[in-house]
Amino acid sequence: MMNKECYIGIMSGTSLDGVDVVLCEIDDVECKLLSALEYPISLELKADILKTIEDESSLEQLGQLDHRLGLLFTQAVGALLIRENIDVSSIKAIGLHGQTLWHAPTGEYPFSMQLGDPNILTAKTGIPVVADFRRKDVALGGQGAPFAPAFHEFIFSNIKNSIAIVNIGGMANITVLDDTLIGYDTGCGNALLDMWIAEHEGSSYDKDGAWAKTGRVDYGLLDRMMSDSYFEQSYPKSTGREKFNKGWLQSHLSGATHNPEDVQRTLLEFTALSISNEVLRFNRDMVMLCGGGAKNIFLVERIKALMPNIEVSIATNADEIEAMTFAWLAYKRFHHEKVNLKDVTGARENAVLGGIYA
């Protein structure tokens, strides 16, 4: 057994609800969470990220955003180091996912773009950084996402039940632990819910699904959204804001007038239904939820109601698992170990992922 080493993981997902930073102690059999912190993203930076995704941007704007995100991730790590009084010499490396701006793993020129300059992070902290995890998988013909299933297999391998794990971030993904590891994006998670309440209520998210609960499901709208071709595609598959965004929703609203709370309620049902439909494809006894959406009480209620014969629970450290994934991926990179993802992403082979910024 290898000696335990300390790694930091950083995750800023498509939900843009904050930067998750974790400190983990890792060896070849365990990834133990030692501490965690959620660092806020300023409203100005969040707006600029969304504007860059949704509108045309100049090379200058992209370059500046890359730098600003590098500073944000540095500040987030610094906050954890200071709060926990951590000696930087005790940290082997930082695993940095970066902020996804665009994910297009299919087509003539497939790519996945994450911003947040790792050079800034290592220069200011003095800690090596592992970043740019997704593009090697894409270069090998894979989707470059989701990566969480490989980590789920590592941390949940001792559970004997027939389980699935569902991570609900801005997008949602499923992991099915079986003889062959299965994992893919089920569709939208929190992204449209957060976008809609921000536009109509000025809140960054719908706490506990309280606003959605005041509305009614518009089944016509729900049917139109569920008829999207993404749900007919077989896995491996992945998606993001380049697909499920404001323009996509507006196209299904069809210019008609809708009560805002009814749209919110319908979007919540859309997330719950798209998740439950995928879980029910597999003969599972139990589903464990993680990610920010696992804190949405009403969303969890609806997922349970749509799968009455399956036990639904919230995973331990549900909020931190994604950031822990990238601490673990940094560990894998430093030990030159391939990541078991080819059956998830469709890549030609498993590979050592990420570049080291020393």
Rank of each mutant, 00 (worst) to 15 (best):
M2R: 15
Y7R: 03
I8F: 03
G9P: 09
D17W: 06
G18N: 12
D20V: 01
D20Y: 07
I26T: 11
D27I: 05
E30V: 14
A36G: 13
P40W: 02
I41T: 12
S42Y: 02
A47M: 00
T52C: 08
L59I: 14
E60P: 00
Q61V: 12
Q61N: 13
L62E: 07
L62A: 11
L65Q: 08
R68N: 15
G70Y: 03
L72F: 09
Q75T: 11
A76M: 04
A79L: 04
L81V: 15
E84P: 10
I94E: 14
L101T: 08
W102C: 12
H103V: 09
E108F: 07
P110E: 02
D117T: 11
L121Q: 06
K124M: 13
I127F: 03
D132H: 12
F133S: 01
A139Y: 01
A139S: 09
G142N: 02
G144N: 04
A145L: 07
P146K: 10
A150M: 12
F156E: 10
S162V: 03
S162D: 15
V166W: 02
N167A: 00
I168L: 04
I168H: 05
I168Y: 06
A172K: 12
N173I: 04
N173T: 09
V176D: 12
D185F: 04
N190C: 05
L192W: 11
S204N: 13
D206I: 12
K213P: 04
T214V: 08
V217G: 08
D223H: 12
D223V: 01
Y230T: 12
F231I: 08
K237S: 06
S238F: 03
T239L: 06
G247I: 05
S251C: 07
H252K: 15
L253G: 12
A256H: 14
A256E: 15
E261P: 00
L268N: 07
E278K: 15
F282L: 02
D285Y: 00
A294Y: 05
K295G: 03
F298V: 06
I303T: 09
M307E: 07
S313F: 00
A315I: 08
N317Q: 12
D319C: 07
E322A: 00
E322K: 05
M324I: 07
M324G: 08
M324A: 06
T325W: 02
F326W: 05
R333F: 03
H336K: 14
N340E: 11
K342P: 01
A347E: 00
A351I: 06
Y357R: 01
A358K: 11
